[in-house]
Measured scan of single mutants.
Amino acid sequence: MKTQEELTEIVRDHFSDMGEAATLYVQVYESSLESLVGGVIFEDGRHYTFVYENEDLVYE
């Protein structure tokens, strides 16, 4: 099982292909040891929320 830090790095790496991230945040109260819930805000103003669970990243 991966730590939240490892899950955060996986998510950060995925979003790095989409541009320069200004902020990546984790909603600790919705996350667990198995999943990471949060969002990313890019330098150009785009904002996505995400759920990373079971090696699957879903974002909108």
Rank of each mutant, 00 (worst) to 15 (best):
T8G: 04
G45E: 01
G39R: 11
F42T: 02
V28M: 10
F50G: 00
L36V: 06
V40G: 00
G39W: 15
A21K: 10
V40Y: 03
R12M: 11
H14G: 05
E43W: 10
G19L: 06
D13V: 14
V58T: 11
V11P: 02
E34W: 09
Y25N: 02
T49G: 01
S31E: 10
L33M: 10
V28S: 12
L36H: 01
E9K: 14
E53C: 13
T8E: 14
S31F: 11
V51L: 06
S31R: 08
S35N: 05
T8Y: 11
D17G: 14
G39H: 12
V37I: 11
Y52S: 00
E5P: 05
E20F: 14
H14K: 12
Q27T: 15
M1T: 10
T23H: 12
Y48Q: 00
R12E: 03
Y25D: 02
D56H: 15
Y29K: 01
V11L: 07
T8H: 05
L57D: 03
Y48D: 00
S31L: 10
T3M: 05
G19F: 10
V26I: 13
A22E: 06
V11A: 04
Q4T: 05
H47M: 07
L36F: 08
G19V: 06
A22I: 14
V37T: 09
T3I: 04
Y25A: 03
R12I: 08
E20V: 14
I41V: 07
G38W: 10
Q4G: 04
L33D: 07
R46N: 01
G19R: 05
E53A: 13
R12L: 12
I10R: 07
D44L: 09
Y48H: 00
M18Y: 07
E53P: 02
L57H: 04
E55D: 12
T8N: 05
E43M: 12
E5Q: 10
G19E: 04
Q4V: 12
H47E: 04
E43C: 13
V51D: 00
E60G: 06
E9L: 11
E53H: 10
I10N: 03
V26Q: 01
V40W: 06
E5R: 09
H47T: 05
E53K: 13
Y48S: 00
Q27G: 05
G19C: 13
E20W: 14
V28T: 08
L7V: 04
G39A: 11
A22Y: 15
T23K: 09
E6A: 07
S32D: 08
E34M: 10
S16M: 10
